[in-house]
Amino acid sequence: MEAGAAAEDEPVRFDTKIAVLLRDDLEPWQRLNVTAFVVSGLGSVSPEVIGEPYADADGTAYLPMFRQPVLIFEGTKETLTKAHGRALSRSLPRAVFTSDLFSTGNDRDNRAAVRAVSADQLDLVGLAVHGPRNAVDKVLKGARMHP
C-alpha cells in the first residue's frame, strides 16, 4: 500500500461549517433564491472555503465550488433574529437576505434596501454564516435542519 493511500480513504472532516438559516414561512422558490444569494457572498470573504476547479474526462473546465457541504436549517422569524445577533457578536462572516429584497431587481437596490434598516430591525428571511463548527452551532441554536 502506498504511503498516504489510507489518508485518502478516510472521511474528510472540516473544522469549519457553512450554514444557511431560512425562515420557515418561505415559499419553495423563495428558499432556493435566498439560499443561492446568501451563499454567494461567503467565498468572497473566506476564500479558503472554495475548492479547486473541476474538469470532466474530456477536459472541459468547470468553476470551483465550496470544498465542504452547506448545511441548510430553518427557523422562525425570531430564530433568525437571534441567530443574526449571535453571528454579529461572534464576528462571523455572514450574509443576509431580507424580505424587502424580494421586491427589488438588482444589486444596487438590494444593498440600498438593507442599508435603509438598522441591524436590529432587519426583516430577515435568510442568513448564511461560516466559521468554526462550535461557533456556528451556537449561532444556529433553536434552528432545525431543513426537511
Rank of each mutant, 00 (worst) to 15 (best):
L80H: 10
V39G: 01
G131W: 00
S118Q: 11
P47E: 02
P147H: 14
N33Y: 05
T76A: 08
N134S: 14
T16D: 09
N106H: 09
K82E: 13
D56C: 05
R23N: 04
P53T: 04
F66M: 06
L140Y: 04
S99E: 10
T16G: 09
G51D: 02
I50T: 12
D120I: 03
R67S: 13
L21K: 01
F37R: 05
A61I: 06
T104G: 05
M65Y: 09
A143S: 14
S40L: 08
E78C: 06
A57P: 06
S40Q: 11
L42A: 00
N110K: 10
K138D: 15
P11Q: 08
R90W: 08
L80F: 09
Y54W: 11
P11S: 06
F102I: 03
R86Y: 05
H146Q: 15
A112F: 04
R23P: 05
G59Q: 08
G126N: 02
T79M: 07
P132Q: 12
G59H: 09
R67A: 14
Q30W: 04
M145P: 07
F73L: 09
Y62C: 07
R86N: 11
V45N: 00
A61R: 13
L88C: 02
A55L: 10
T79R: 06
E2H: 15
L101D: 03
A116M: 04
F14V: 01
A57N: 11
L26W: 06
A6P: 07
R31W: 02
G75D: 03
I50K: 10
R111N: 12
L127H: 01
V136L: 08
F73H: 11
M145L: 15
A55P: 03
G4N: 07
L140N: 01
I18D: 01
T104P: 01
K138G: 10
K82S: 13
Y62L: 10
A143P: 02
D56E: 04
R108E: 14
V125Y: 02
Q68I: 04
Q30N: 03
G59S: 08
A19V: 01
L80D: 08
I50R: 11
R90P: 02
L124E: 05
R90H: 12
V20H: 03
L21A: 07
N110E: 14
R115L: 11
Y62V: 02
V39Q: 00
K141I: 09
A7T: 12
S99F: 07
E27Y: 12
V39S: 02
S118K: 12
A19F: 07
L71D: 05
P28Y: 12
G43K: 00
E74L: 00
E48S: 11
S118E: 13
T104F: 08
F37T: 02
A135K: 13
Q121K: 15
V96L: 09
F102Y: 13
D123G: 04
V38L: 06
R31A: 14
A112N: 08
E48W: 08
G75E: 05
E74D: 06
A36W: 04
R94G: 00
V38D: 03
S99R: 15
S89L: 08
Y62Q: 07
H84F: 14
A57L: 12
F97D: 06
V96G: 06
